[in-house]
Amino acid sequence: MDIEVIKRYLPLFSKAFLLTVKIGWLGIALAFVLGILCAFTLYYKLPVLSTIVRFYVELFRNTPLLVQLFFIYYGLPSIGIRISAQLCGTLGLGLLGGSYMAESIRSGLEAVPAIQSESAKSLGMTKWQAFRYIIAPQAFNISVPGLMANVIFLLKETSVFSAISLMDLMFTAKDLIGLHYNTTESLFLLVLFYVLMLLPVSFAGSLIEKKVRFGMYGD
C-alpha cells in the first residue's frame, strides 16, 4: 500500500463521503416522515388511503433499491418525468425506507395490547392522552430495534447510488481503480469511509437498544 497514493486520493474520497452521507441521511429523514404517515394510516385503517399505502409498502419492500433507482432515473424520463441524480437518490432511498419504517412502526403500535387503550379510556383519559402517555411510549420501545436496523440498512444501501452516476464512495473507488489500477489503496479508503459512516451509528444503535430494553424489562 502506498501512503502517497492514499494522501492524493483522500480529498476525492472525503468529497464523495460527504455526498453519500448527505443523501443517505436526507433519504432516512424522508423515510421516517413517510413511514410515520403510512404507519398511522394503516393503524387507524383510514379508508382508501390504507389500501394505497399497503400497495406501496408491499411493492417497495419486495423490490431491490437498484431496480427502483433504475426505474426512477432511467425509466421515468421516457414518459417526461426528469429529475436530478441527487434528488433521485434521496427519493429512492426515502421511498424504500418509508416502506420499511412503516412496517416497523405499525407492528410496534399493534403490539401494544388493546387492554392498554381500554384501561386508559376507563381512567378518563382522552384519546390523545391515551396515545401520548400510554400507547406511544410502549409502541416506541417495541419499534426501536427495528428502526435502528432500518437506519443501518438504509445507510448501507447508499452504496448502489453509483448506478445512477452519483459521485459517491463506490463511484469514486470504481473510477480510481479503472483509471490508475491502485486497487488496494482505493479499496482501503472505501472500507475506511464506510466504517467511519456506519460504526458510530451501529454503536449508537446498541446503546439506544440497551436503554430501551432497560425501560421495558429492567435488565
Partner: peptide, 23 residues
C-alpha cells in the same frame, strides 16, 4: 457479525472481485 452488519454488500463485492485478483 459486526463486519457484515456495517459493510455494504456492494463494498464486499468490490473487495472480492477487484481486491482478490489484485492480491
Amino acid at each position: 457479525l459486526e463486519i457484515v452488519r456495517i459493510m455494504p454488500q456492494m463494498v464486499l463485492l468490490f473487495i472480492v472481485f477487484f481486491g482478490f485478483t489484485k492480491l
